[in-house]
């Protein structure tokens, strides 16, 4: 296990290195800089500003400065947000995004699996078709359209929830649902097809021949096996939720990390872009490792300890 963790940690560091390098290259390729604006500012002032933030340094120097920052997890001050470092911005934005993301993930997993189970056990009956139509809709309708519908219906017409912004728990419900819909639909479809496959297996016949029924049959014999592929996609699902939150946070006006990330790009706030993309990547890599570990726990055929048993 330790050996596995160590190997994965090295892999993670290499992955992150490539991601931050690529981000830096792409960022440098965007024309303009943080001080490009419509306002007429004397050239001398702009130059002083660039000097101050080290933007007049040769590109390689900027790159190594930035690598050093990543190594010590210090990305320096933000350009747009006065007197605040990137680390401070992440520290304020992340808890909000985390609540949103975790709630969305929980909704997606719970209802996705539930929907999949019900659909599979009613295979080719009306509930199955209904669940799958919902799933296809959930997958194909973009989250911002869904968010708008939710706001219009539940916040404006029914007034059950606040329209936007952040604060109380009620504020978090609509954005969490909007964020969860696509991954939920994906999980539901996968759970359904995976259960149907498991149900056709010989060991299910064995279980039935033993007289296994009800809860024990569904949980121990069917779900335990059917959820293995579902666990594998939780990594990519987390990515979907992370990137999905950029849009959702904008729509609902939530002061989360995604908002800083998107605004950082339009402002060309270089330290903020680099810091947030590094942070997002780190979370994603962490989740992928977590999923790998979970995979080994749920499927005894996969041994993490020594490669092969």
């Amino acid at each position: 296990m330790l050996q596995f963790m160590f190997r994965r940690l090295i892999g993670a560091v290499i992955t992150l290195f490539f991601i931050i390098t690529l981000t830096f290259v792409l960022m440098s390729a965007i024309p303009g800089d943080p001080f490009t604006s419509d306002a007429r500012v004397p050239e001398q002032v702009l130059d002083n500003l660039r000097d101050h933030y080290g933007l007049n340094d040769p590109i390689m120097v900027q790159y190594f400065k930035y690598l050093k920052g990543a190594l010590f997890l210090d990305f320096g001050p933000s350009i747009k947000w006065d007197n605040q470092t990137v680390n401070e911005l992440i520290a304020t934005g992340f808890p909000v995004s985390a609540i949103l993301g975790i709630q969305a993930l929980a909704i997606a997993i719970f209802f996705g699996i539930l929907l999949g189970i019900i659909a599979a056990f009613n295979h080719n009956k009306s509930f199955d078709y209904m669940a799958m139509i919902i799933a296809i809709l959930g997958l194909s309708v973009p989250s911002f359209i869904f968010a708008t519908i939710l706001i219009n219906f539940f916040a404006i017409k029914l007034q059950w929830f606040p329209v936007a912004t952040w604060g109380t728990w009620q504020h978090s419900i609509l954005p969490s649902i909007a964020l969860a819909v696509a991954p939920m639909a994906y999980i539901a479809r996968l759970t359904r097809s995976s259960i149907l496959e498991v149900l056709s297996m010989d060991y299910i016949q064995t279980a039935l021949a033993k007289g296994v029924t009800g809860y024990r049959f569904i949980i121990v014999h069917v779900l335990r096996n059917a959820l293995i592929p579902v666990v594998t996609i939780l990594g990519p699902i987390t990515a979907t939720i992370l990137t999905g939150s950029f849009v959702i946070e904008q729509i609902f006006g939530i002061p989360g990390l995604g908002k800083y990330f998107v605004e950082g790009i339009s402002d060309r706030d270089y330290p903020l872009i680099l810091g947030t993309s590094f942070f997002y990547s780190a979370i994603l890599v962490f989740f992928v490792i977590l999923v790998d570990i979970a995979y080994g726990v749920i499927d005894p055929r996969i041994k993490l300890i020594k490669g092969r048993d």
Partner: peptide, 14 residues
């Protein structure tokens, strides 16, 4: 009941 193929008639996760 004993089934034909012992490779597939046991639950792999139990």
């Amino acid at each position: 009941m004993v089934f034909q193929d012992p490779m597939s008639s046991l639950n792999p996760t139990m």
